[in-house]
């Protein structure tokens, strides 16, 4: 048992977390998995603390996951979404956050379409802030649960080759995972059509491939991403069927992969586009393990952030 008393004020970017920080978070997460397996899945650790989920973009998994995590810790969890708040009446982010601050929340979980939104908010209030996705920038809690899911199945996070396939240009999940995997010395190759791979991404130390078939046999983990239709004015390829033919994962293509390969997807899944239904539901698919780990990781983060005072 490692006794690393790390101090992490906010969870904004995987770039802020050292390997030791991540290992400490996972060590704490293991304890919360035990709580999730109890008949009564609740502990009083955050009794009297308030967690606000402030979501300016749609979300099912992440918001629910944070809500369940907070409730299992006995925190009071409040959800604010764009459509149900005064944001739709023209209130600015600054005003929304200042008003929330006046209600003295302990942790603010923020999802926003603008990169850096969570970081900006930390300067406006005393509460701890968790970035639950800021534009195409980062989604650190997703990367943490992805790393944990990989560690569960490969027993290590080092020396692996991870392929991330799809809309890399718009993917905060890809960016956060690249930063996290590199911390542990794993290799990342991003795969997709040229129009979805940012120019110069090699500078971040990742491999690039425009040919999924050619590289699939070398991958230990395949992480499929959704085409983020809402962030494109028009599709950057002729049509979804053609995209699916070259970059979708189906049983036929999977035959070229290593026998112990595992498939991941941060969701939401577009079945039949980036992943065939029989692949998404197969035993080597870890999609639901990712969701399960998400609750435990977020419990650990809420607990660790609430456990110390500035």
């Amino acid at each position: 048992m490692k006794e690393t008393p790390v101090r992490i004020p906010h969870i904004l970017s995987m770039a802020d977390l050292s390997r030791e920080d991540i290992e400490f978070i996972f060590q704490t997460t293991d304890r919360f998995r035990e709580v999730g397996g109890r008949p009564i899945k609740k502990v009083p650790a955050l009794r009297g603390k308030t967690v606000i989920n402030l979501f300016f973009e749609n979300s099912t998994r992440t918001r629910t996951s944070f809500e369940i995590a907070g409730k299992r810790l006995s925190a009071d969890v409040i959800n604010i979404t764009k459509s149900s708040s005064s944001v739709s009446k023209g209130e600015s982010l600054l005003d929304t956050v200042k008003n929330l601050e006046a209600m003295a929340p302990d942790v603010l979980v923020v999802r926003h379409p603008a990169a850096g939104a969570a970081q900006t908010i930390t300067r406006m209030l005393k509460a701890r802030v968790i970035n639950a996705g800021d534009g195409a920038h980062e989604h650190p809690t997703q990367a943490l649960l992805d790393l944990l899911t990989i560690r569960d199945h490969k027993k290590t996070l080092s020396g692996l080759h991870v392929g991330i396939v799809g809309d890399i240009a718009h993917s905060r999940v890809a960016r956060s995972n690249i930063l996290g995997l590199q911390r542990f010395g794993s290799k990342v190759t991003v795969i997709g059509p040229k129009s979805l791979i940012p120019l110069g991404i090699e500078a971040f130390g990742v491999g690039v491939s425009y040919d999924f078939k050619a590289v699939i046999g070398d991958l230990d983990i395949i992480m499929m991403l959704r085409i983020q239709g809402e962030r494109h004015d028009r599709l950057p390829f002729p049509n979804l069927r053609e995209y699916s033919r070259f970059f979708g994962l189906n049983l036929q293509l999977l035959q070229k992969a290593k026998s112990d390969v595992v498939i991941m997807h941060p969701g939401p899944v577009n079945r039949g586009v980036e992943i065939a239904p029989e692949v998404a539901d197969a035993p080597y698919s870890l999609i639901l393990n990712q969701v399960k780990n998400g609750v435990a990781v977020r419990m650990a983060l809420l607990y660790l952030l609430s456990g110390t005072e500035e």
Binding site: R7, D30, R31, Y303
Partner: peptide, 12 residues
């Protein structure tokens, strides 16, 4: 909980 100066180490 909040009076601790360092992050708590939760054990098994």
């Amino acid at each position: 909980l909040s009076q601790a100066s360092e992050m708590p180490v939760v054990k098994e």
